[in-house]
Simulated assay, not measured.
Amino acid sequence: MFEALMIRHTNGATTTRLEQVDPASLPQGDVTVEVAQSSLNYKDALAITRGAPVVRHFPMIPGIDLAGRVLHSDDPVFRPGDQVLATGWGLGEKHWGGLARMARLPGRWLLPHPAGLSGRQVMGIGTAGFTAMLCVMALEDGGITPASGPIIVSGAGGGVGGMAVMLLTQLGYQVVAVTGRAQLQAYLTSLGAAEVLPREALAPTGRPLEKARWAGGIDVAGGEMLATMCASITQGGTVAACGLAGDMALPLTVAPFILRNVRLQGIDSVMCPRPRRMTAWARLARDIDPTRLDSMLHDATLAEVPDLAPRLLAGHIRGRTVVHLSASK
C-alpha cells in the first residue's frame, strides 16, 4: 500500500483526502516510479478544491509534476534506480498524478533527472519553470534579445511569472514585473525585476494600440491584460501567452499584428514534444540561478496540501510549493 491524495466525486460532492492505495490499482504504464517530490500548481489547486472540469474522471490522484526513482520499467530507456521527472501529459487530470508516493506512467512521458539539480530544485522548477522557459525560448525564436528592450511579465507573483522574471534576468533582459499584490515588490525585485507595476498598468483603455513600451511579454492571465500587453509591444516584438488566470476571452483587434508586426505565440507545456522538453530542461539546468530559485520555494508534506490549495487560489502563496513525499521535509 502507498499513501496518496485522492479526489472522489460521490453523490454530487467532490472530496479530497489522504488514502492508502493498493499498487495494483495504479493505471496502465510501463514505468513505476517511487515519487520523492511533487509540487502544488494552480491547476492542482483547482482540481483539489473544485474537481471538474480539471479532473476528467474520478477517482483521481492530482499532481501535474513528479520526480523520483524508477522501481520497475518495461521501457528500455529506463532502468530501476534511474532518477526521473515528469510534467504535464494529463497527469492529475486524466492519469493519476504525482501527489502520491507511487506512480505508474508511460516511459515516453519521463525525462532523466537534470544533472546539477536536486530533487527539491527540480520540483521547485516543475511545470511553472518549464513553462517559463518555453516562454523565454519563444521570445528568442521571435528574435528578441536583451538589446531589444524591456520585457513585461504578468502574474509575476505566481509560479510561472516569478520563474520568468528570474530566468529573463539571469539571461540579461530588463524585466518589468506586473502583480496585483503590492506587498510583493521587494520579493520581485530580489528575483531581478527592474520595475514592478500594479495590475492596473495593463488595464484596458479601449484603444486598438497603446504606447509602444515593451519589446516582448510573457502573459499568464489572458483576457484584457493580454490584449493590452499586445497593444503595447514595440515594432516586431513577441508575446508568449501561457495561461488564462484572468479570462479565456481575448478582446483585441488585429492592429498590433498588422501595424507593428507583433507576434503572439501560444505556449502549451502539457503536450510539448519530448525533444523541446529536453532542450528546455537542459536550459533550465544551465540558466537557473540556484540562490534566487531557493528564495522562491516553500516546502510542504502531502498532508498539508489540501489546506494549501485554497490559499494558493486566493493569492496568499507566492512562488513555488514543493511537496515532499517522504515522512519528513
Rank of each mutant, 00 (worst) to 15 (best):
V122H: 06
I61A: 02
V70R: 06
A67F: 03
I125S: 04
M123Q: 14
W109H: 14
L99E: 13
L85W: 06
T131M: 06
G98Y: 03
R104N: 08
T87V: 11
L117A: 04
W96I: 03
P106C: 02
I61C: 13
V122T: 12
R79H: 15
G124T: 09
A115G: 07
R120T: 14
S73Q: 04
R79V: 14
I64H: 03
W109F: 14
I125P: 07
P76D: 09
Q121W: 09
A115S: 14
L71R: 15
V77W: 04
P62A: 08
A86Y: 06
L105D: 07
L91W: 04
G124Y: 09
G88H: 10
T87L: 13
G98Q: 02
P114K: 10
H95S: 08
F130R: 11
W109V: 05
G81K: 06
L66H: 12
E93F: 10
A103T: 03
G90H: 12
V70E: 02
I125Y: 06
L111V: 00
H113F: 09
T131H: 12
A67W: 02
A100D: 01
P62S: 11
L91Q: 10
G98N: 08
G107N: 06
K94H: 10
G98S: 07
Q121P: 00
A86N: 05
D65V: 09
M123H: 02
A100E: 05
T87M: 15
S118W: 05
T87S: 11
Q121D: 14
V77L: 12
P106I: 02
W109K: 04
I61G: 06
F78S: 02
A100F: 09
I64D: 08
T127Q: 12
G97P: 07
S118P: 03
S73E: 00
A115M: 12
A103K: 03
R101N: 04
G116V: 10
E93Y: 05
L111T: 00
G68I: 01
L105Q: 09
I64A: 09
W109Q: 11
H72P: 00
W96N: 08
F130K: 04
V77H: 14
